[in-house]
Computed example of a mutant assay.
Amino acid sequence: MTAQNMVDRLAAAYDALADSYAAGRHLFDTTPILRRCAGLLAGRARVLDAGCGAGEPVARFFVDRGDEVTGIDVSERMLEIARRQVPEARFRHLDLRSLDFPAGSFDLLAAVYCVFHLPRTEHGALFEGFARVLAPHGLLLLTLATREYTGADEFDGELDFLGQRLPYSHDRPEVALDKLRRAGLDPIAADRIETGGETFLWVIARKRGPEASPPHR
């Protein structure tokens, strides 16, 4: 399967489950981690909600905080719901692997419940793309899958979610964190957090400033 075919299939699956997903999103309380991340921001921020889904909880949380929010997703149906639920934000149909924003456009990039749908072989390049659009010292909020969700330390395969077969892929946590560092994103928190009966690794990382030295390879 080509990369584009995979994205098209993922978009179609999320189009199909979008209404059920949006209706049940309140069962997953991510407010504590969103508040923790917001507490690290200096005032109002430019926020990119990458893989924004139906606009809740991330876009809604940061709009209510007074931030300038842009959301992107590959699912047109998800974007329709997001525009209705969070009209104060801007939403675009865009693959998070092809961020066409100028360098340094955002103070926070949130990639919640989405990166694990892409092959882990692409995560290093994906993180480099995230780092490019973040301002120096900007923050990344990231959700990664782990053994608690897939049943394996490393995983490449498909799982059922709301009646759809979706791709999942993840490294061991230490490997994923190393990929972030190599992309210039230094983890400052990495915690397994259970929400709605599901446990994922939630990572907050900060983009290295221009004065910092790159990690030894």
Results as ranks from 00 to 15, higher is better:
residue 1 M to D: 00
residue 2 T to Q: 02
residue 3 A to S: 09
residue 12 A to V: 01
residue 13 A to P: 15
residue 17 L to V: 12
residue 18 A to F: 02
residue 25 R to W: 04
residue 25 R to G: 01
residue 28 F to A: 12
residue 31 T to K: 13
residue 31 T to S: 14
residue 32 P to T: 09
residue 32 P to F: 11
residue 34 L to G: 05
residue 40 L to I: 07
residue 42 A to V: 13
residue 46 R to G: 00
residue 48 L to Y: 06
residue 54 A to S: 15
residue 54 A to M: 00
residue 56 E to G: 03
residue 57 P to G: 10
residue 60 R to F: 07
residue 61 F to A: 06
residue 64 D to A: 15
residue 65 R to L: 15
residue 68 E to M: 06
residue 73 D to S: 03
residue 73 D to R: 05
residue 75 S to L: 10
residue 75 S to G: 10
residue 76 E to M: 01
residue 77 R to C: 03
residue 80 E to G: 06
residue 85 Q to P: 01
residue 85 Q to H: 14
residue 88 E to L: 07
residue 94 L to G: 02
residue 102 P to K: 15
residue 106 F to Y: 05
residue 106 F to S: 06
residue 106 F to A: 01
residue 107 D to A: 01
residue 108 L to R: 09
residue 109 L to G: 00
residue 112 V to D: 09
residue 114 C to H: 08
residue 118 L to M: 15
residue 121 T to M: 10
residue 121 T to R: 15
residue 121 T to C: 10
residue 126 L to I: 14
residue 128 E to Q: 12
residue 128 E to Y: 02
residue 130 F to T: 04
residue 132 R to G: 00
residue 138 G to N: 02
residue 139 L to V: 06
residue 145 A to L: 08
residue 147 R to N: 10
residue 148 E to F: 11
residue 153 D to E: 14
residue 160 D to A: 14
residue 161 F to S: 13
residue 161 F to M: 12
residue 165 R to A: 14
residue 165 R to F: 09
residue 169 S to E: 10
residue 170 H to Y: 07
residue 172 R to S: 09
residue 176 A to D: 07
residue 176 A to F: 04
residue 184 G to R: 03
residue 184 G to H: 02
residue 188 I to W: 03
residue 189 A to S: 14
residue 197 G to F: 07
residue 198 E to D: 13
residue 200 F to Y: 14
residue 201 L to D: 11
residue 204 I to M: 12
residue 206 R to C: 01
residue 208 R to H: 02
residue 208 R to D: 06
residue 208 R to C: 03
residue 208 R to E: 04
residue 215 P to T: 03
